[in-house]
Design a protein around this nucleic acid. Structure first.
Lengths: 144, 144
DNA sequence: ACTTCTTTGAGACTCAATCTCAATAGAGGG
DNA sequence: CCCTCTATTGAGATTGAGTCTCAAAGAAGT
């Protein structure tokens, strides 16, 4: 389904209005696979003459996150990052402490064990955070 | 080793000064195994007539975290929680979304797999965050 | 077009955490 | 015990991501 249609569909289902601003924010988020924060997204919009206010960027992102179109990433540095979730399989993240590169990983075994562990401890998991922080072995990375 | 001695030892090694305030903050953190934030710790100190300023509480916690006496926990709700790390084995956390109860877990298998995964992706892990969020099956928990 | 209700923008506000800087106080040496 | 050299402290200002307010603008159904 095209991005525009998907957005319209979801907004309609939730009795929310389809607006130019919401479309612009959604387009901007779909335009890359980087892990950007709200300020980055706001600035990218301004750079291409699309003036959506900061408040609206935040509000729209909230709508997209709540409706599962966008994923919020908290890497513990005090601001949320966002990634387009459309047709993207679940994954977790490895972050390089030197160059701040973010790489995605997914391991079915870990997913299963953590489910089992939670069950044993009397929990039903809704979501999880699994992040690895370390040093990448990339040549171009500083501290090499 | 007694708490006071441990603190003195570490401060000395780092050429930092042993002060009454640092001792008080460290004592307060050692006094329970709850996962409290800086404000909680600050308030507990005031409640027992120990006046350490908010800034000093934050600064002392930083010193303790950097020197591995205390662990910082970021559960994604906008404030850091802290736990005494002295003689405490590594563990991760499960959080109940209803009653905010925090339970600790540890699974050697997951630890090993994540190490392996990181290696395969060209990373050397320094630390990790692994948190499970869901609903506990406790009778006393709301939403039952 | 009319009406109703939602959304937007601009700036004020919140809140955890950090910074500033003058005053205070460890710690080692004499 | 005092001196000097620095580190530390307290009080309040500041930061910065994110949220709130409210009047004006704009969807969407009729």
């Amino acid at each position: 389904m095209h991005n525009t249609d998907k957005l319209k569909q979801i907004l309609h289902k939730k009795n929310l209005r389809y607006t130019q601003q919401r479309q612009e924010v959604w387009d901007e988020i779909c335009s890359t696979n980087e892990h950007r924060d709200a300020e980055d997204i706001y600035n990218s919009l301004r750079k291409r003459q699309t003036n959506v206010s900061r408040a609206t960027v935040y509000r729209t992102i909230d709508v997209l996150v709540k409706n599962n179109l966008v994923r919020r990433l908290d890497l513990g540095d005090g601001r949320s990052r966002f990634e387009n979730k459309m047709g993207i399989a679940h994954h977790d993240h490895i972050v390089c402490l030197d160059c701040r590169k973010i790489v995605e990983f997914m391991n079915e075994e870990i997913e299963e064990i953590q489910e089992q562990v939670a069950k044993e401890m009397g929990f039903e998991i809704v979501r999880h955070v699994h992040q690895l922080f370390g040093h990448c072995l990339d040549e171009k990375c500083p501290n090499k």
